[in-house]
Computed example of a mutant assay.
Amino acid sequence: MRGPLVYFKGLFSKGITHNILQQQPESPFRIMVRKETGDHVRSWRFMVMLILIVLTFLGSLYVSLNNINKAVANINDPDRVFVYLKLLTTSDGTLPTFHIFISFLGPLLGIALGFDAVNAEQNNGTLTRLIAQPVYRDNLLLAKFCGALIVVSVLFLCLALLMTGGGMIITGVLPEPAEILRILAFVVLSILYVGFWLSLSILLSVKFRNAATSALTIIGIWLFFTVFYRIIVNLVVNAMLPGTGYMQPGDLLSYNNLLLSLLRLAPSQLYTDAATTLLMPSVRSLGPLTIEQMAGAIPSPLPFKESLMIVWPQVTGLLAATTVCFALTYYLFMRREIRT
C-alpha cells in the first residue's frame, strides 16, 4: 500500500511545485504605480486640492440646481432638454460654471502632483537606490505619470457620478444616453487637460534639481497662459488692425480667425472650447460664421458624433502637447547621470 501512496504524494507535490513556478512575480512597474498612487492619496497637497475642487463643484452644482427650472423652461434654448448638461453649464452669475473652475484649478492639481516627482527623489537619496534595482528608467517615469493620472481619473469620475446621482434624486429625471456620453467625454477631456500640466511639471522636475525652482517655473508658465497671454495676443492683434474705416468684412473675418488661432496656443483655451462644445450640443462652430453660412440654419442640438468631430482638433492639440512634454522628459532623464 505504500507504493500508491508515495506515488500520489509525489504527483501532488509536483503539481504544487509546477503551480508555484507558473506564478510570475509582480512587475516592478505595477508596484511603483501602486506606491505612487498611495503616496498621492495620503499627501496633504492632494487633500488641499481635493477640498478645493469638491467645494467648487458643490457650489456650482448648488447654483445650477437653484436655476435649473428657469433654464429648462426657456423655450429659446435648444439645449433645454438636456437636464444633466444644464447642471454643468447653468449659472446665475454669482459663480462660474464647473468647467470654468476646472480650467483654472485643473492645472494646479497637475502641478501639485508632479512638480517634485523626480527631483525630490534625487534630493532624498532614494532615486539612486531605486535605479540600482532592476528597473528601467522609462518605467519609473511612466509610473510617476500613471500613478498621478489614476488619482485624477478617479477624482473626476467620482464627481461625475456624484453629479448624476444628485441630479436623479433632486430632479427625478433619468439621464439620456447622449447626456451620459457627453459627460463621460467631458471627464476624459478634463483628465487629458490635467495630464498635460502633470507631464509639464514632471518635465521641469527632471530639468531642475531643486523642487522650489521647478514649482516656481511651472506656476509662472501657468500664470502666463492664464492671465498674460490673452492680453498680449489682444494687444498684438489690435496693433495690426487698420482703421475701422478701411476694413472690409473679409478682413475682419481673417483677423478674427488669426486672433482665435493665436489664443488656441494656450491649453486653457483648447480646454474651454472643447468643454463648451461637449456640454452645449447647440454649439455648431468654434469660429466666426458669416451670414451666408448661418442662412437657413435651424437652432437644434448636434449629435454627439458631430460635436466630437468639432472638438477633435482641440483634443489632438492637448494630446500632442502632452506627448511632446513626456518625450522631452524621457530624453532628459535618460541622459542624466545619477550619482550618490
Rank of each mutant, 00 (worst) to 15 (best):
M1W: 11
R2G: 06
K9D: 15
S13L: 09
I16C: 06
N19C: 11
S43Q: 09
R45C: 00
R45H: 03
V48W: 12
M49E: 13
M49I: 07
L50F: 15
L52Y: 09
L52N: 06
L52D: 01
I53D: 06
F57V: 09
L61A: 13
L65M: 15
I68H: 04
A71I: 00
I75L: 15
D79H: 05
Y84C: 06
Y84S: 07
L88A: 11
S91A: 12
G93C: 02
G93R: 02
P96Y: 04
T97G: 14
T97S: 08
I102W: 06
I102S: 04
S103I: 08
F104H: 00
G106R: 04
P107A: 00
G110L: 03
I111E: 02
F115Y: 15
F115A: 02
A117N: 07
E121C: 03
N124D: 14
T128H: 11
R129L: 12
R129T: 14
L130K: 04
A132Q: 13
V135L: 15
N139W: 09
L140V: 12
L141M: 14
A143F: 07
F145M: 10
V152M: 02
S153I: 05
S153D: 00
V154A: 07
L155K: 01
F156D: 10
F156N: 09
C158K: 05
T164Y: 04
G165F: 13
G165Y: 09
G166P: 00
G166M: 04
I169W: 11
I169C: 03
I170V: 15
V173I: 15
V173N: 09
P175F: 09
E176V: 00
P177V: 01
I183R: 02
V188K: 00
V188F: 09
L189H: 02
V194L: 06
V194I: 15
V194M: 10
V194A: 01
S201P: 00
F208W: 09
A212D: 08
A215W: 12
T217V: 12
T217M: 14
I218P: 05
G220A: 15
I221N: 04
F228C: 01
R230D: 15
I231D: 05
V233G: 08
V236Q: 02
M240R: 14
G245M: 07
Q248P: 10
P249F: 12
P249I: 13
G250P: 02
L258I: 12
R264K: 08
Q269P: 00
D273C: 04
A275D: 10
L278P: 08
S282N: 13
L286N: 04
L286D: 01
G287I: 08
I291S: 02
A295N: 04
A297P: 00
P299S: 14
P301N: 09
K305R: 11
E306L: 05
L308K: 00
M309Y: 08
M309R: 10
P313G: 12
Q314F: 05
C325L: 08
C325R: 01
L328I: 13
E337H: 10
I338N: 03
R339M: 11
R339P: 01
